[in-house]
Nucleic acid binder design. Structure first.
Lengths: 340, 340
DNA sequence: TTGTAGGCGTTATCAG
DNA sequence: CTGATAACGCCTACAA
């Protein structure tokens, strides 16, 4: 439609002047500025982002990669990011990885110099190639809800979270405490390791050595949780409490428990992880991982990095919070002991 | 960070040839193509989107405007859009309007020629200025879950939805049926009018003339719903069923009903609207407005428009579906009559 | 304070 | 089939 040349002609000035007015340069005579602004207005002129980006070597674009995977959970991060970016004039480009097979295709297009100034990666582990490219091309990047060597990140301290969950169960008098978690995969960015550490440490500190079978690995889904519970109920000394590495699985555990004739929390206590939206309605006691807050902090960190041109990786850790609801209760022996 | 000149040098060809290889032109000798591809690989070359966009006058960007407003509901549209765009190489730019005050600022930046090839507007009514600009600049745009003159759209047929909701209540024997809806505002893109029509038509067809006070307008929130219910309970002839224009309000109605000592559905039937995620957990009977599907269809339509360069506005209507859950039941008199 | 001109990285045209 | 070369729209020295 129109270019700065049109505006220049309309205002009777040179393109340089128009450009200066547009970028708010102080070196413009007040009267000239007014004339130019009027011309801009009259023509409805908008600078072409592509031309501007080409020339300035800055796109004003922040790219974000999210696993949209039908999980409302991740959208929270988006909200936080959006909040942090609202008052800047960065444009938000969003790339989603729905299936594991999308990953390489998406990662290959992400953080390409000249396509975006910065990248935010949510709940996903970048491949070594991506990491290398980001570093080589000096693209500012921040991981949210994930951590990786050499990259900045904002993430939950999963070990602390695990310890808290277990401590809560210990406080309720439980001694037979099991763990159900998913295998490390693309969509569970290294959180398992931390949780496992927390689980083991807390139990060790209480002088409890759970049998190996108490550490179940299950598919990330309600069905996975249900299957793991079934396995746990096969064990001679059955657990009275279970810490589950994701609410999705925990929900399956809850359902399966009922199917097996176990009352929750009377016969079995269950602690989930993440505090997804449904957790509230299911009354699930769980670890709240504050995605929105992490999104906000991650975006803020990226803006910082961008502003300072600082390349050294920063790492922020967020304290998770235990949300106690209705799926955890005192262990039976413990309750009886209290009565006596 | 290399340019096609670097690649050209590396491959021992001219930049034109590199460009041709990159864009898959058939007019390249096989051997040359291979050499160029090897050079591209070696240098890790990626064409700069800005330069490409500038030259081609095409950004390969689709912009989407959503009210993110803490409502999971809208994200569903995003999912559908994402699905439709997954196999194209369009980049998705997302702009969110969180508060009413964001609107003008965001709309002003949206659909700027040279910034995006097409625009998707979700659950929002564009201002006349935006509409005019989009048309003047020949920007392809599709409204999702909204309709406006001169613009393409994919939306629910709200009148049909209203009729269905009411018919369901009539079938249950209800005769005192009230309506609670929100005022038309930025975030309820003209759906109210359709619902109201459906409400009135269905009742008229059943020879029922509800008192004027049966049509309540309330704030879009649980509190709004609760307040409207309170008002309804003041009326002499109290309704036995209520059709509520949004699940958010309906949830408030449910809660308030309990507070007022009304059992749902024994004393009062409630039908919501939208089928937001929580509706399922609340057991709310509601109209399912398929956001994901609309997102998908809207994006598909935009792709079509873009491909055909067709400017005439298309309009697609989607049939809503009534999801019967636990907040609707037979009217008392009706139940008794059946027994007798 | 202002205008002019060169160049950002591509693509497309046009000779060869 | 291939190589120069001229735009694309903007910003920014630099000169005036």
């Amino acid at each position: 439609v129109s270019t700065i040349y049109d505006v220049a002609r309309e205002a009777g000035v040179g393109v340089g002047t128009v450009s200066r007015v547009l970028s708010g340069s102080p070196n413009v005579a007040p009267g000239t500025r007014l004339r130019v602004q009027a011309a801009v207005e009259r023509l409805g002129f908008r600078p072409t982002p592509a031309a501007r980006a080409l020339r300035r070597k800055r796109t004003d674009i922040i790219e974000i990669v999210v696993p949209l995977v039908t999980r409302h959970f991740y959208v929270e991060a988006l909200r936080g990011i959006e909040t942090a970016l609202a008052n800047t004039n960065f444009t938000l480009v969003i790339r989603t990885i729905e299936r594991e097979s999308d990953r390489d295709r998406v990662f290959d297009r992400v953080g390409v110099r000249g396509a975006a100034d910065g990248v935010l990666i949510v709940s996903l582990l970048p491949t070594p190639e991506l990491t290398k490219r980001l570093q080589a091309d000096q693209i500012c990047a921040v991981l949210i809800d994930a951590e990786a060597n050499g990259l900045s990140s904002v993430a939950v301290d999963h070990a602390t979270a695990g310890r808290r969950a277990i401590q809560h169960l210990l406080d309720l008098g439980h001694r037979q405490i099991a763990l159900i978690d998913s295998p490390e995969d693309l969509f569970s960015a290294a959180s398992r390791a931390g949780r496992l550490d927390g689980f083991r440490e807390a139990l060790a500190a209480a002088d409890i050595r759970p049998p190996a079978a108490y550490e179940q690995v299950a598919e990330f889904s309600p069905e996975g949780g249900a299957a793991a519970l079934a396995a746990l109920l096969e064990i001679e000394e059955q657990p009275t409490a279970i810490f589950v590495g994701s609410d999705a699985q925990a929900l399956g555990v809850l359902e399966a428990a009922r199917a097996h004739g176990r009352e929750v929390p009377e016969d079995l206590s269950v602690v989930g992880y993440n505090d997804i939206e449904v957790a509230r309605y299911a009354g699930l006691t769980t670890i709240h991982t504050p995605m929105r807050e992490m999104g906000r902090r991650g975006a803020a960190m990226l803006l910082d990095l961008l502003a300072e041109g600082d390349a050294t990786a920063r790492r922020e850790r967020i304290e998770p919070e235990l949300v106690i609801r209705r799926t955890t209760g005192p262990a039976k022996q413990f309750a009886e002991a209290l009565e006596a």
